[in-house]
Design a protein around this nucleic acid. Structure first.
Lengths: 113, 113
DNA sequence: CCCTTGCTTAACTAGATGGTTAATTAACTG
DNA sequence: CAGTTAATTAACCATCTAGTTAAGCAAGGG
């Protein structure tokens, strides 16, 4: 799970962390500000932030005793690229072609590919 | 981790499972065909397929003793939507606006939002 | 210098994840 | 019916995850 894409997706696989990113999309925030909406201890938020940081999705500065967090969306570009490769499989405009290709594939199910 | 988006991202957070989806993008495949590229036991692949199935990313049919797997990309649409909301944060054309907004936000770091 | 505020680290727990081998089920094949 | 092939299930194990409470560490404010 050490590759970038895996840790990005893993970081996104938690509603708390996605909510934190959504909040940071509105601008910088401190840990306490980020924690405020959640019924969860501060250490728990701290851990979520560490996961986001190690995935490169946030960066943290220092301002006196505050540790302001900032969104770093770069890893999301790679994730978007990956997902987009599959767009034709869910996009309505490709349904007919897709069904056709699938039925061709079905006849060759035991073939090399 | 029970919501759709979380289980979709969780399923994608593993290179083996992403490779399986990539293979299925070329068409249906049986479990043994899917397992072939990996140095991993068949039960391990079976478990990965179960994760993908519970996330709704694949469906499985029956053809005699074979259980052909098929890509079901629908959940990826939701994932793509989520990620796309952040596009402006990594897209070069938004960098200048983004920097500007951040600097405004910075002055209000202790504010309500 | 002590106290409060902001946050992290430590230690622990319950449950999920990712893998293994061995046993089992299911369906075709001689 | 016996054997082979395809795949799953069971049982087990190590590691990771997401949370907890309690203790520790910086930095600013009386």
């Amino acid at each position: 799970m050490s590759d970038q894409l895996s840790s990005t997706f893993a970081a996104l696989a938690d509603p708390t962390r996605r909510a934190i990113l959504a909040r940071l999309a509105e601008g910088e925030a401190t840990v306490n500000e980020l924690a405020e909406p959640f019924e969860m201890s501060l250490p728990a938020i701290s851990k979520h932030l560490k996961v986001l940081e190690r995935a490169g999705l946030i960066s943290r500065g220092r301002n006196a005793q505050w540790r302001p967090c900032q969104l770093e969306a770069a890893p999301l570009a790679e994730a978007a690229d990956w997902v987009e490769k599959y767009r034709r499989f869910w996009d309505a405009s490709f349904d007919r072609l897709d069904t056709h290709l699938r039925s061709l594939q079905g006849k060759n199910i035991r073939g090399k590919d």
